[in-house]
């Protein structure tokens, strides 16, 4: 049993250590698959659905999230077919409608080709990506916050709405949240949400740099260290 597997992503031969997810393998090779809930070193859950890809198996294609898909020998992945782009655009649109107050989500949506949002804005300020919960649970092993409620009522909460004593105050939950970056005009008013997509955000830049994801160089996701602004500036120069 070899330690490495070889698979094909968008026609390119990609070699990845056994056990890597298809998304990680693609990102390693500079193939950008948009993603939101994915974080390096944290168990993938596949909740944002942005990283969907087509897997060709025995001549049949199957759509699945690439972050939860383990790379296997001889796998054939198509990440940017018309079918995928259409579905991904729709997903991004719904994410914006859910939380229009996030610049990061708007940027990713623009990257996915969203020009206009057809869904009513819900303005929830949370898309339940679970980045904060998983960072708290898995990276910091603190378990200070988690998902509470079910169905429509599901939300991220602290037990009894107060910060537990054992919270390490690492602020990872805030740093990793896609909502921390508000659109350039500041927080939107209720009922006046809009899809910006025109301002000189990095997104507009991303059209020039086709292969770079928005908040990421080669789609590394949001800055894990939380110093988004600093690195962003450097990248521009």
């Amino acid at each position: 049993m070899s330690e490495y597997v070889t698979l094909t992503i968008n026609g390119a031969k990609v070699r990845a250590p056994r056990g890597t997810s298809v998304l990680d393998a693609a990102l390693d090779y500079g193939i950008c698959i948009p993603h939101l809930c994915h974080m390096q070193g944290v168990i993938p859950t596949g909740v944002c659905r942005l990283c969907i890809v087509e897997v060709i198996e025995k001549g049949r294609s199957k759509v699945t999230t690439s972050c939860t898909l383990e790379a296997e020998e001889g796998m054939v992945i198509l990440a940017h077919t018309d079918k995928i782009l259409k579905a991904r655009k729709n997903i991004a649109e719904m994410l914006v409608a859910e939380a229009p107050n996030s610049r990061a989500i708007q940027d990713i949506a623009l990257k996915c080709g969203v020009k206009d949002v057809r869904y009513p804005f819900r303005n929830k300020d949370c898309v339940l990506c679970g980045r904060c919960v998983r960072a708290c649970t898995e990276i910091w092993r603190s378990r200070s916050l988690g998902f509470v409620g079910r169905g429509e009522q599901r939300h991220v909460a602290l037990p009894f709405d107060e910060r537990p004593e054992f919270c390490k105050r690492c602020n990872a939950c805030i740093d990793l949240c896609p909502m921390t970056i508000t659109p350039c005009d500041g927080p939107m008013k209720k009922g006046e949400e809009y899809f910006c997509g025109k301002c000189e955000s990095q997104l507009s830049m991303s059209e020039d740099f086709v292969d770079s994801c928005v908040w990421c160089r080669l789609g590394e996701g949001f800055d894990v260290t939380g110093r988004h602004a600093g690195r962003k500036q450097e990248d521009k120069r």
Binding site: G146, L158, F160
Partner: peptide
Amino acid sequence: VPLIEVFRVANY
């Protein structure tokens, strides 16, 4: 059991 887990189950 972490308090959040107890809280989550109690709410669920």
